[in-house]
Amino acid sequence: MLQLLFGYFAGMIAATSILVVALRNPVYSALSLLVMFFHVAGLFVILHAEFLAAVQVIVYAGAILVLYLFVVMLLNIKQDDRYHSQWRVAAFVCVPLLIEAIVLLSGGSRAITTGSRLLQTDSHGTIAADNTLAIGQTLFSTYLFPFEVASLVLLVAMIGAIVLAKRDIGESDTQSMTQPAVDE
């Protein structure tokens, strides 16, 4: 049963991630990315990370993707979107990486599984039955300082986004006051 669920989620994630890159229309790309986010959330449920599955749906699918769709529809992008001319560079970079990944994962998976269970005695606590409670306790005890830094990152990003998106309006206002007849 678990294998069946993993197969479904993994297949859908792989297919939709290819569609994100392959589809020409950015709206379709964003919508297939939405489908991929939901399946990644399902994969998190399989991996006993229920809180992260909920956060994935709420934050990624609810907030980030809506922001993308908003900008796509705001900018009114033309359909003509050919591929970049450096696709040869992409092939040159990615085909060896893919081969390396296949070789490493086919040869080194046994070493990973044998040496894994030694790291259990860590200070972060094991995964409890109540996932949200455990994450909250870990986040506010061990990772308290990174949590505060993350809030600072969000504040800086918010200020930066406002400044970047608003600057043209302010400039055009001052320009229209000083020199009104400038044609763009």
Binding site: V20, V21, I77, H84, C94
Partner: peptide, 18 residues
């Protein structure tokens, strides 16, 4: 790898961010 390929071959900047 799909993401890396997408960053390298797409021309649309929104597709690159995706």
């Amino acid at each position: 790898l799909t993401g890396v390929v997408g960053v390298l071959i797409r021309r649309n900047i929104i597709a690159i961010l995706l």
